[in-house]
Amino acid sequence: MDKGNSAAMSSSSPVRAMVGASIVASGITKVYGHGTNAALHALGPMGLNVKPGEFVSLIGPSGCGKSTTLLLVSGLESVTEGKIEFDGQILRKPISDVGIVFQDHLLLDFRTALKNVMLQQEIRGLDAAELRARADMLFDRLGIAGSEGRYPRQLSGGMRQRVSIARALVHDPSMLLMDEPFGALDAITRTQSRHDLEMLWMETQKTVLFITHSIEEAVGLSDRVLVMSKSPGMIVEEIKIDLPRPRPAHLGEYPEFAQYAERIYQIFAKLGVYKF
């Protein structure tokens, strides 16, 4: 059995509480289409290193390849060049020991909120009672208790996104990949969601790769922020965020926050992201 297969096998094992997984990517690029004219160079070459239990944000202008990075790291799209290691094993197919919060939540509109979350249990064949208890806990923690029986169409944008976060966490994966999960939310809900996510993360110590275009979210949540350049995206700067946790709703309480934000802003300005 080769390494890729055994990685897939172990990742399909039942729920296990453990520290997060690690990701090491080196020299990865993604080119869509073939030929010189049709090809779209979406990403890279770039490297990425996320340690077990670490909360890392990828921030960059829209269209820089942030979402592509997430798809590559999750194994849902294959790299054109380079390689990715998930927990030390080369990634060859979609990893399943992962929770993904997709942009636009991607809930199934024919399933109720609870059944959307329990999809993980149904497909992975996990213990129904145990997962149900976890789902209840997550609904409660994410402030969506009481909406279990509702269909996505009956929920607000914020609630839908919370349901999709619950779905990404219910099977207790060792890694969480989030693609602008709070992008569509209003400012108040976003701040609350950010706090709730931080608290959940502090309890579970999963590895999180968080994609955002919000400087506030990146600094407010991360251990490290990776700043990406415009398309084709590359990581141009790494910023360690050294702020105590849990971080407050109003980040302005920390003078350091303004400094971090200013640094990211300056990088964007240098890259020509802003044109004034």
């Binding site: 999750s74 997709f102 199934l108 999809l119 497909i123």
Partner: peptide, 22 residues
Amino acid sequence: DPRQYYLSKSVGASWWQTFRLF
């Protein structure tokens, strides 16, 4: 929605599960 397949793949759905559940 083609992105639905991202979801079904990431949860490790088999061919039959993908058909029946998605």
